[in-house]
Design a protein around this nucleic acid. Structure first.
Lengths: 236, 236
DNA sequence: TGCGGTCATCTGGTCCGACCAGTTTCGTTA
DNA sequence: TAACGAAACTGGTCGGACCAGATGACCGCA
């Protein structure tokens, strides 16, 4: 692991994590009015500012709705939530994601990365190809030294590079938005297929890009995702 | 407008907005080290906490990178930014979005909503259809009373309802993630095609869904997006 | 002259208690 | 009974105090 010796947990984090757990586990229901910031502060024996800051964070994750000067309510997060909500769910449930959630995520990934692959295949330069090959080599080399999380991060960066090189900066922004969720996915993927298989696939992507075969690259991605879902189906 | 009488602008917002402007306009460049929080605080004559809170927000938008105990640096936001970065850009540039940005956004929208349309066409109940017709009617009725922004919000909610009813909650989360960007899009769209055309299209979507014709609904969406991009091309 | 260690100074991070301005509630008054 | 208004809430803002890690200049030793 890379962040074992996590800095001492602050009161703010303690509060946030407790609230995430309580809300996602159903201790409170959407629409419920929460106790006031002052009550939370008193109960935890800390200042109100800390609670305020924590609620700001929870609101950004779409878990609560703050009505100024009135109160704070549990949000109907599956309706009003955003990608941060998904991150919170992924973080809490670890690898225990439902198939439905995974399908949704992969639909999006195919859309984002498929578009990038097609665009890059059209506009790629020889430098682009070299860059990707070099990244692939790095992954192969470092694979014995680093942990699973770090490897997942490398795979994420490899695929993000596709977006960056494709000349479609918006796709890169979306890719980054899905960072946390993607890491959870890659950890699972690497555990399921093994590193060698995964790295070989990267090479095949590069081959398609080098040959300017955008559809080939897209189909490879689509087939990979379909196979992944099949395995998930069968193992469950 | 819905929020004209905006609450008095706080120091925190003043600072954040000034920084967004300075960074996006290129006053600072990616990698530059910013003055310390204390310097900013002194210069503005306010407390350091406000600056700290503001920088936290800027970091969440992907505009700056905070290196604890060291300093705060301008991020290479087109590489490391996320959807919040895009929101900031949209907010600053208003309707002056580049074609490239719009294409990227619409690619994603087709992916998200196209998937939802197909799914809903398969699983729709008669209540779903009634619900959508009722929403459409609401838009038609309120169209004379409300401003353009409010109308754009209604169109957003209509399309979000597709995701909600489709039984794919992840799509809803993504849809919400794109809320701010979508509003900017709808304002533009309504100005370009007019309200009547836009509402009629909603009816056509419902017809396809009622007939359980997922591909038809998808094609309608794809054709609409393609036409929009054509117009954009020709007018520029 | 060059190297290594030490310590003051700088950074961001956390926290508190006071204050502000709307909202809500409830008792008083017409 | 209905309208009013004050008091008791609510979340939001703010400045100053303190913490711990990073930094870098400075001093002493080889």
């Amino acid at each position: 692991m890379n962040r074992i010796e996590k800095h001492t947990v602050t009161n703010r984090e303690k509060f946030i994590n407790a609230m995430i757990r309580d809300i996602l586990s159903g201790r409170w229901n959407p629409g419920d009015k929460l106790p006031s910031q002052r009550e939370f502060a008193e109960k935890m024996g800390i200042g109100k500012t800390v609670i305020q800051s924590g609620f700001e964070h929870l609101a950004a994750m779409g878990l609560v709705e703050i009505k100024p000067k009135s109160g704070i309510y549990v949000a109907d997060y599956m309706k009003t939530g955003n990608i941060e909500t998904l991150n919170a769910i992924v973080q809490l449930n670890g690898s225990e994601l439902g198939r439905e959630v995974i399908v949704g995520i992969l639909d999006l990934r195919l859309a984002i990365e498929g578009t990038a692959l097609r665009a890059l295949s059209l506009c790629r330069t020889s430098e682009d190809v070299l860059r990707l090959r070099s990244l692939t080599e790095d992954i192969r080399e470092c694979s014995v030294d680093v942990g699973l999380e770090e490897l997942a991060e490398r795979f994420f960066l490899w695929h993000r590079e596709i977006c960056i090189l494709s000349g479609k900066p918006i796709l890169t922004l979306f890719m980054n938005t899905m960072h946390d969720v993607s890491i959870a996915f890659w950890v699972r993927y690497l555990g399921m297929y093994g590193l060698d298989f995964a790295v070989d696939r990267l090479d095949r992507f590069i081959d398609f890009i080098e040959a300017r075969d955008g559809n080939g690259a897209y189909d490879l991605l689509a087939a990979g995702i379909a196979d992944y879902l099949d395995r998930l189906e069968n193992q469950a």
